[in-house]
Computed example of a mutant assay.
Amino acid sequence: MSQQNDAETPGPEPQTSQLKEVQRRVEEVRSGRVAPIAGEQVFREVEQSLVARRSGA
C-alpha cells in the first residue's frame, strides 16, 4: 500500500454557504461598497489591541 503525500491529498470541499459568502464579499469589494484592508494593517491593529488588553488599558 502506498502512502500519499499531504500536498497531494485534497482537503475538504468548501461548503455551499462558504462559497456564497466569499462571492458576496468579492462583489462588495468590486462594487466599491467596502474597501479592502491591507493584511499588514489588520495584524498591526490586532497586535495593538492585544498589547492594550495585556496592559489593562
Rank of each mutant, 00 (worst) to 15 (best):
S55I: 12
M1W: 09
L50I: 15
G56L: 02
A7Q: 07
R33C: 08
A7H: 13
E45T: 01
V22F: 05
R44T: 03
R44Q: 06
K20E: 14
S17V: 11
A35H: 04
A52K: 04
A7C: 13
S17F: 07
S49Y: 14
V42M: 02
V46C: 05
R24C: 09
S31I: 11
Q23H: 07
R54C: 09
A57H: 02
R33H: 11
F43A: 05
R53S: 09
Q4W: 05
Q3R: 13
R33D: 10
K20A: 03
S55N: 14
P12C: 01
E8F: 10
Q3W: 08
V51G: 03
V34M: 01
E45C: 05
V26S: 07
S55Q: 09
V34R: 02
R30S: 13
S2P: 15
R25M: 11
P10F: 05
Q3T: 13
T9C: 10
E45W: 02
G32D: 09
R54I: 12
F43H: 01
E45K: 04
E27S: 13
V22A: 14
R24E: 15
V26I: 14
I37W: 03
P36M: 07
V29I: 13
E13V: 05
V22E: 15
D6L: 15
Q48W: 11
A7D: 03
F43N: 04
R54W: 13
P14A: 06
T9K: 08
V29D: 06
N5Y: 10
E28C: 07
G11S: 09
G39E: 00
V51N: 06
V34Q: 02
E47N: 00
G39Q: 02
E13N: 07
M1V: 12
E28H: 06
Q41V: 08
Q15K: 08
R54T: 12
S2H: 09
P14R: 06
A57E: 07
V34I: 14
E28V: 08
S17K: 07
E21H: 01
E47I: 12
E21L: 06
F43Q: 02
F43R: 03
P14Y: 02
Q4T: 11
T16Y: 09
Q4E: 02
Q48I: 13
E47V: 10
V34G: 03
R25K: 11
G56R: 00
R53Q: 15
R25H: 09
D6F: 12
V46K: 05
Q15C: 03
V34E: 04
T9I: 15
D6W: 12
E28I: 09
L19Q: 10
E45R: 05
R54D: 15
S2Y: 10
F43L: 14
G11M: 09
V22K: 03
S55R: 10
A35F: 04
I37Q: 06
Q23K: 14
R33K: 12
R53V: 14
L50P: 00
Q18L: 08
V22R: 06
Q4K: 14
D6S: 11
A7V: 15
E28R: 05
V29L: 13
G56E: 12
S31R: 06
Q18E: 15
M1T: 09
V51C: 00
E45G: 02
R24T: 14
T9S: 07
K20Y: 05
L19Y: 04
L19R: 12
P36R: 03
E45I: 01
G56C: 04
D6H: 14
R30G: 13
V46G: 00
S2L: 10
V34N: 02
E27G: 10
